[in-house]
Design a protein around this nucleic acid. Structure first.
Lengths: 221, 221
DNA sequence: TAAGTCTTCTGTGTATACACTCGGGGTGTT
DNA sequence: AACACCCCGAGTGTATACACAGAAGACTTA
């Protein structure tokens, strides 16, 4: 793989998983030494991260990891609502019912797996949700919408990493996802929007309640 | 200004205004010679253009100017509908009524100026619409939404450059904009959404009818 | 002692040289 | 004659050197 691509993915993962904290200054020279590559691919990686909104220019002095406040989370979910509702609506209109009927069934099974927690990371559940997102994107068949979703999900993943894994919330989310999948499978756009909106409302409540957004201190250096 | 920034803006303008046609291959060496700068800032500019969706990677062989089909325009307006309706709704909830009342008044005046075409480019009208967009962004107060709008408007500008300036359509659009501004000024979110949707529906019809999207041939080289 | 300025230094912006990969064309073989 | 392999070149990917700008610190002066 290209060095710039590797650097981008490594830094992106570091930021999303909070190994690089908000306020941390990312110097080109320092990064090139740490990653063992030259400044050129590092610059490319930093440019892409800034375009993604994960880093911000620091007054001509390189870039810093972007902070994320509770207000940002609200804005993010508000924006996400526009995208996800439209995507669900389009999927209900255009999608293959069989695909979403199958997903709804898988979600029911996963719901049982979530109560009996033999999978502490719930990796299989998250993988299932990811497949559902991909299926909705596919069904919505709108490249602009898809690109926006990709960007939003990056920030969402970063926010989600802050939340404690709450089994009860996870079970509720699974039920909500199941209802969305069912509405799409039934080809009911209005219901798809409604179920999506319900899910996002609950998800935002959970995100704002259980997370410590403000207390996160910028990195010392 | 930085060389990379200049190169980016120059190329972006060339693509948006159809001086660079879809399919045109943009080689780094060729561009660096044409713009009188080195390859490094050219690479930066091309990266940003690709992130904007104005250019696409060409199998590791540089980038090419992105094509834009009638289907792309439909997708673009479908996506734009999500954004503009949400923005109008938020503006109706949060915006300062006075700002939009003033805009509605200016649109009424502009409507008269459009019929008596003493301004052949309608520059003042377009400037007014731009101010209204900015006011809505400001009132919606959502950074994610705003960034998405910026990206969409880039593609919209590119599509619009293909359309013949139709005075009747322009007058209709002015009325539609006026109704949107009025709904926002009245603090009526539902009406703001409805008027926006009406406007976009008409705009899409006009865009698809009057433009020659498919006939545009990729550049010879 | 405080404020202003000068110096220095760190780090980015740009240019250029080198390496490597992917196509294309030509030639040889079957 | 057709197919496969090899050589060559064009162009990108990466490294590095140099120029320049902004900031921090120290020194001087009022």
């Amino acid at each position: 793989m290209r060095a710039g691509e590797r650097a981008y993915q490594a830094l992106r993962a570091d930021i999303v998983e909070w190994r690089l904290l908000p306020g941390q200054v990312l110097g080109e020279v320092e990064l090139s030494e740490r990653l063992g590559i030259s400044r050129t691919p590092v610059r490319e990686a930093l440019s892409r991260l800034t375009a993604d909104g994960l880093t911000e220019p620091h007054s001509g002095r390189g870039v810093v990891v972007a902070t994320i406040s509770a207000e940002d989370v609200r804005s993010l979910y508000e924006f996400r609502d526009s995208l996800d509702c439209r995507a669900a609506e389009l999927a209900a209109r255009r999608g293959d019912p069989e695909v979403f009927r199958a997903l709804a069934g898988e979600l029911l099974e996963a719901l049982e797996g979530l109560t009996s927690d033999d999978d502490p990371d719930h990796a299989s559940y998250y993988e299932l949700v990811q497949r559902m997102d991909a299926a909705i994107d596919e069904a919505a068949a709108n490249p602009f919408l898809r690109q926006a979703q990709t960007g939003v999900r990056l920030h969402l993943a970063r926010v989600r990493k802050l939340s404690k894994s709450d089994p009860r919330r996870l079970a509720s989310a699974a039920v909500e996802h199941q209802r969305i999948a069912q509405a799409i499978a039934d080809g009911d756009p209005a219901l798809a929007i409604a179920t999506t909106r319900v899910h996002l409302s609950n998800a935002l409540q959970h995100a704002l309640n259980t997370k410590e957004l403000a207390p996160v201190r910028p990195a010392a250096s």
